[in-house]
């Protein structure tokens, strides 16, 4: 099936470019530094309320990292093909538009998840080298990993969408960053004064701050799953329509 062919090509193309290795290196370095800092903080302050892992996925640096990573990964997916003209080869092959969009999306999502593997290693190292080792809580790991996948999928879909709009990678990255930031901005509105209960419930429904807050506690909630999956599907559908529109409308 064309999807697999394209997906394999998409994923391998990340490892053919220098940018990917730099993003990978930068992410691993930042994640490691934050992890070490938090570990030291907990050890020195004798802080007992939260684990390193729980603070990590709710602290500001985590968001910054997330917001920068995604545009860097997705900015090239379509923009580069437009710029180099290779889109012409791609679109004149007997391939459906949704196969192209999905392969680019899953390729980028896979690479995004690879970027978060170093955190697993950090956690493993913490278990191995600290005395006594911190308690293992698979439930929390599971819900956090799921939330990373869901939020990642939504953000990557936004990046794929902004990439299909332009052949300029910088524009694509900046637009993607703006859209991602907008979703975060909505979550921040929670602290506004004089909000009625209805608005508040909506904010908390879409707030990724709350989603991660719950996830690190091992709370399994189906509402964010529905939210992220449906949003991702919607954005990808719009992307597919835009790509298809190029062929249909003269």
């Amino acid at each position: 099936m064309a999807f697999w062919t394209l997906y394999k090509r998409e994923l391998s193309s990340y490892f053919q470019s220098v940018v990917a290795y730099i993003v990978l290196f930068g992410s691993a370095l930042a994640q490691g530094m934050v992890f070490i800092t938090l570990t030291n903080f907990i050890a020195q302050q004798n802080y007992k309320d939260q684990s390193v892992f729980q603070i990590f996925f709710t602290c500001a640096i985590f968001w910054i990292l997330l917001f920068v990573q995604v545009p860097l990964i997705t900015m090239r997916v379509f923009s580069e093909e437009f710029k180099l003209g290779t889109i012409e080869m791609l679109l004149t092959a007997p391939v459906r538009e949704w196969e192209i969009v999905l392969s680019k999306f899953f390729g980028a999502l896979t690479f995004f998840l690879i970027l978060w593997l170093p955190v697993v290693l950090d956690q493993v190292a913490l278990q191995l080298f600290s005395n006594p080792p911190p308690p293992v809580s698979w439930g929390q790991y599971g819900t956090t990993a799921l939330t990373i996948v869901l939020v990642g999928a939504f953000y990557v879909s936004l990046g794929v969408f902004t990439s299909v709009l332009t052949k300029n990678q910088i524009i694509s990255a900046v637009l993607c960053f703006a859209l991602i930031f907008a979703t975060f901005f909505v979550a921040l509105q929670k602290w506004q004064q004089h909000l009625d209960a209805f608005t508040l419930s909506w904010i908390s429904y879409v707030s990724l701050l709350e989603h991660f807050g719950h996830a690190v506690q091992g709370l399994f909630d189906t509402r964010p799953i529905v939210y992220y999956v449906s949003m991702t599907a919607f954005v990808l559908l719009v992307t597919q329509r835009i790509l298809l529109g190029r062929r249909l409308k003269g």
Binding site: A2, L6, Q16, G85
Partner: peptide
């Protein structure tokens, strides 16, 4: 196409195999 746009990071064999797969 004119100007022959190709994936410049691929090897010739790899590219032709990729295109053959795409073209079913």
């Amino acid at each position: 196409p004119e100007n022959v746009p190709l994936y410049t990071d691929m090897r010739v064999n790899e590219f032709l195999r990729f295109r053959a797969e795409l073209k079913k």
